[in-house]
Design a protein around this nucleic acid. Structure first.
Lengths: 313, 313
DNA sequence: GGCTTCTATAGGTTAAACTTATAGGAGTCG
DNA sequence: CGACTCCTATAAGTTTAACCTATAGAAGCC
């Protein structure tokens, strides 16, 4: 059975004539006759009664036509959904993202994406970097926003920016200097995430890199909770800069830059190297970079809550 | 888009490998690769991600697969229903039959047919011969049982038997002779069908052939009613022999043969010459002849209600 | 009976699907 | 790190089959 045969058959059924059907499907009449015969032979039954001047469906033909039409309609739909997907008029996009990035990059990004692709079903999973890598490798994620570098040969990465860690302190607290050396952290007990959290591990890594072993006065499992505690004067914490900056306006917090060395880690997009990314995924990645660039510019263009001069390169 | 391509694609989706899929569909791997590529090119989107060791469906592939599978299942069903029809395991058979024949031939015929083909939806329409011919030509009837001869060149006919007309009289009525000449009918007023009925026209035709113009004492539109009236002594009537014979046992009727000439007309099967008859129709026709033969034999084999000797050839 | 209008068949051509052979990318193991 | 294995893509040549034109053959129409 061939699709061509079905189309020819349906044309004959519609026009009640081999000759006219042949014209409509743009094929010679003998060609069409042969194909119909082949179909009938394969099915083992006549589908059409050749009644001299006209052609009529046999009972077998009637039944067969119903199914054949449904099958062809199904195939039209098959092609249609692929087209829709191509134009990002439907589909699903699953992104894994670092929980910190999730708080400042994702909200404006999702907003813009939804505006451009309202019909795309967007899933955002805040996960630690290792989980994102696992998800990408298991083909459960379309895109990941995670810590770089990633060694895995199956993954392609695109650097996005460097996420810097800063010290968040109560606004009321008078700092000895506008910037603090990493070693100065030793003086202050910190409020940090529990040890099994990604964010805590980042902090530990950066401290280790600076040869510092910080005191931990309190562990809380939510960055929001930690910032709240800090603003109430319970201590200081280390968090990603942009994360804190977004919460600065109207809060009782201040940001203190760290240096020697500045704790920072590269963040980037990652995806399976051999995966065919559809339009939605590609555009999500583009928007990701554009939105990030704006976020990095914005604070210096008047959103800086306290007009404090910044020296970051 | 070709069915082959769909089958190849589904095989790859199932086995997650071009090589193994190729083995399962009995084709070389390059052949399969080319067909998949052609399908993807036509759709304008990748359906499969070639991930080195494995192959995974893209989102487009997932969506496409659902529809492709449904389409192929629909085609399997299309072939299946045709097979069922071929084996008369489903289908519809529409038969037009003379109302007289309908009373004696059809009941036992239908019973046997239903026994052999319980799943066939049988439609029996009792109609005058002209309507049957019209129905056959309009392709609304599969088979017809009607008066012969039929001149129409598009119809094929198979003679079944000769339907004889007999005189039905009250059992109490003493007849001068066991058989009556047609001319003798002039002596008796008859109860007949109204003039626009097929059965009445037959009687009129036969009378005209014998050069007789019968008196009509009463017109009734139902053969049953006429026989009832006759058995109650209201008069006599002319009806098909087998029709009356079936109603003879337990009734107050007697049959009187007519001759000079014997009123009779050939009855046969008719169908569109170029129509492809399916198994159900063919077998109905066969059963028709077999059942008719038995009906013609039966009365002489002991079913004769009054043991009256019969001289019919 | 000749004319028109269908579908079926025949013969030759072209397109495309198939084959084998092989390149090339990627994971695996000594 | 290089050899080996496993997988898909490409290339070249062969075969199948769908297509065309021409025409036979059946059937309705004037």
């Amino acid at each position: 059975m061939e699709l061509r045969q079905l189309q020819y058959f349906l044309a004959v059924a519609k026009h009640e004539s081999f000759t006219r059907a042949a014209e409509h499907v743009h094929v010679s009449q003998p060609s069409l006759s042969v194909q119909i015969s082949a179909l009938e032979d394969e099915l083992g039954a006549r589908l059409l009664d050749r009644l001299g001047r006209k052609v009529a469906l046999t009972q077998a033909g009637e039944l067969f036509r119903q199914h054949a039409e449904r099958a062809l309609r199904e195939l039209e739909q098959a092609a249609h959904v692929v087209q829709e997907l191509r134009g990002a008029k439907r589909g699903r996009l699953t992104v894994g993202t670092l929980s910190t990035v999730n708080t400042y990059l994702i909200p404006p990004l999702v907003s813009r994406f939804k505006q451009r692709f309202p019909a795309i079903h967007l899933h955002i999973h805040a996960q630690p970097s290792t989980e994102i890598v696992r998800g990408l490798l298991a083909n459960q994620l379309d895109l990941g926003i995670c810590l770089l570098p990633i060694a895995h040969p199956q993954l392609t990465t695109i650097p996005l920016f460097e996420e810097r860690l800063v010290l968040a302190a109560p606004a009321s607290m008078k700092m000895p200097k506008p910037r603090l050396r990493m070693q100065d952290l030793l003086m202050f007990p910190l409020i940090l995430m529990p040890i099994d959290y990604c964010l805590r591990k980042m902090v530990e890594n950066e401290c280790a890199r600076a040869g510092v072993h910080p005191q931990v006065s309190l562990e809380m499992s939510s960055p929001e909770g930690i910032l709240q505690a800090v603003s109430e004067g319970a201590g200081m914490t280390i968090l990603p800069e942009l994360y804190v900056r977004l919460r600065l306006p109207g809060s009782d917090l201040q940001i203190v830059d760290l240096y020697g060395p500045t704790p920072r880690h590269p963040v980037g997009l990652a995806f399976l190297k051999h995966r065919q990314q559809n339009l939605a995924a590609t555009e999500f990645a583009n928007l990701c970079q554009a939105t990030m660039k704006e976020l990095l510019m914005a604070p210096r263009n008047g959103l800086e809550p306290r007009g404090r001069p910044r020296s970051t390169a």
